[in-house]
Nucleic acid binder design. Sequence first.
DNA 1: AGGGTCTATGTAACCGCTTACGGTAATTCG
DNA 2: CGAATTACCGTAAGCGGTTACATAGACCCT
Lengths: 344, 344
Amino acid sequence: MATGREIAQLCGVSVATVSRVFNQPDTVNEDTRERVLRVAKELDYRPNESARALSTKQSTMIGLVWDTDHRRPGWRHPYLQDLLIGLKSALSAHGYHLLMLATSGDSREIGVSLADPVGYVNTTRRHHLGGLVLIDSGSDGDAFEAFAQSGFPCVALDVAVDGPRATYVTSDNVGGALSAVRHLVGLGHSRIAMITGPPGNQPSEARVSGYRTALREAGIVPRDDYVVAGDFYRASGTAATQRLLALDEPPTAVFAASDEMAVGALLAARAASLRVPQDLALVGFDDIEIASVVDPALTTVAQDKPGFGVAAAKAIMAMITGAGREEPVVLPTQLVVRDSCGAR
Amino acid sequence: MATGREIAQLCGVSVATVSRVFNQPDTVNEDTRERVLRVAKELDYRPNESARALSTKQSTMIGLVWDTDHRRPGWRHPYLQDLLIGLKSALSAHGYHLLMLATSGDSREIGVSLADPVGYVNTTRRHHLGGLVLIDSGSDGDAFEAFAQSGFPCVALDVAVDGPRATYVTSDNVGGALSAVRHLVGLGHSRIAMITGPPGNQPSEARVSGYRTALREAGIVPRDDYVVAGDFYRASGTAATQRLLALDEPPTAVFAASDEMAVGALLAARAASLRVPQDLALVGFDDIEIASVVDPALTTVAQDKPGFGVAAAKAIMAMITGAGREEPVVLPTQLVVRDSCGAR
DNA sequence: AGGGTCTATGTAACCGCTTACGGTAATTCG
DNA sequence: CGAATTACCGTAAGCGGTTACATAGACCCT
């Protein structure tokens, strides 16, 4: 592995000049610059990142905080892979890498836990990370506030955070819910129920709000007994649907805040010998892979999955270079009409 | 951020002693050690990772090579999330982080592409990474050989590689296929076809081999026209099934090398008005989420998803500390009997 | 008592790169 | 033509650790 010093010697210049060739190219004479570049190329020189980070107090890495061994075992992010793809490719364009921060750990204690962000922030400092991307695992939004306050560039996904250099990206959950419920209204439904996510979850609450607005808009008075809380998991969708079907005046349509719960609802309907969509129309949220494959295929609100990653990367990079906070990003959603709503 | 020097001054010792307290605790007097530790704790001291890496030429990071903008667009790893969870948690236990290496890139050129691993290897060197984990995206196995030859600790997933400090972890694909096909044989089938993965893909070929063995074992002569190539995608499963059903003597059971293709087969069967499993029995491979949710629920061979990550982490760590190569790891598979095979 | 060990710690070089500062030669200007 | 810029580049001081080597007591032995 060639070092800057070697290049310098071979070129008959000082290490400072070599460094300048790569960092402030215009301050060095064109001839020497080319000479250095040529030799650097021959020797396949790459500046040592550790040394560079040590010297500049700035690495080319972004930290990813993603709590996995979580209080919600079995929870899977609905579109982690697409998100990572978007994130990675957008960061790559800036020459940045993604460092998945370890949770909990050993004596040198790293991440530790979201309840105690100190470890993560320390890791951020120790590695001179450029910033942090925070992935919500469904219910740790409040924990993110501490990160946002740390002063490091932070972008949270699906959780609104505030801080000197923090922002977030989220889907247009209100709009998505609006379009879903409007669609059901347009199909003639008036007894439309909703299965929500866990209380306090921001996307879920936004979806509920969109649901309510769409109903009022249609002159339908929202009924409290038509809004039942789930937790994004499939089983809760089943349970919620059972409760809904047991009402004196059961709904004819259900809007679930996640596809998983919609699938759960589907199972409940089947178990109750109800046909979907004829007896019970169903709309979900997320457009996960499963949605297109269940029978009937699920009508759902699709999110811009790689868009999350791309937007997060852009925001982080903007905050790294410029030194302020960025505007939150709201990604558009799109209603994907399939069979479970009865439109076909 | 406290530095070692500050600790040293406050304790009236030299920086060397401070460093020793953390790296060779037994070489320093107990009293001073405790004093240093106490002050370090008060100041919330954490050794700077960049400096440490620069000095020791060894960071606490493992690189993850995962080609996303791939020649196979739309390809999704069947269980990336579980794999990452396992990987991350096992690495955490050793105080290591996972660095997702950027693909392609900018002037400082990072990853570049799997076809040209030089970039990745350079990044590995520049960051003093402890080793590399290589995730197969379905068809870049041969590219991994170059990594394995680099001399860095490497563990490939689902691809057999060889190198001075390289190893791999894979499922017992032969065994999994064996159990799947034996199961079908046990249900009375003798006309059993198989849809394979892309040619050259190692797990796929192992599954084919298991399939053949199971047939012979049962006294059934494998027929070439019963083995049709897919590419792991759903659509190829549909197409393959159509070809199979068009045979003079169509199979009564199909074993697909991936769940996605099994789902594709299911769609083809439906389109041909065949009942599954009565007219056509189906078994898949992977046990992805979709498997349990399609109708009929898919019988499939489950892989130990987080186990991949855990095993990879263990192997990497073993190669980092000890300096040799590790034995390849073969994870057990398990047949999950659901409805598509007709056993119920 | 003098020499040899062992233990505990300090000294200083080094890892490889960045950058403030200063100097020299070439260029510009009055 | 001398002075003031300007362009270019070298010197050297970090960045924050690690570690080989040296040193200084304390202890043990003959």
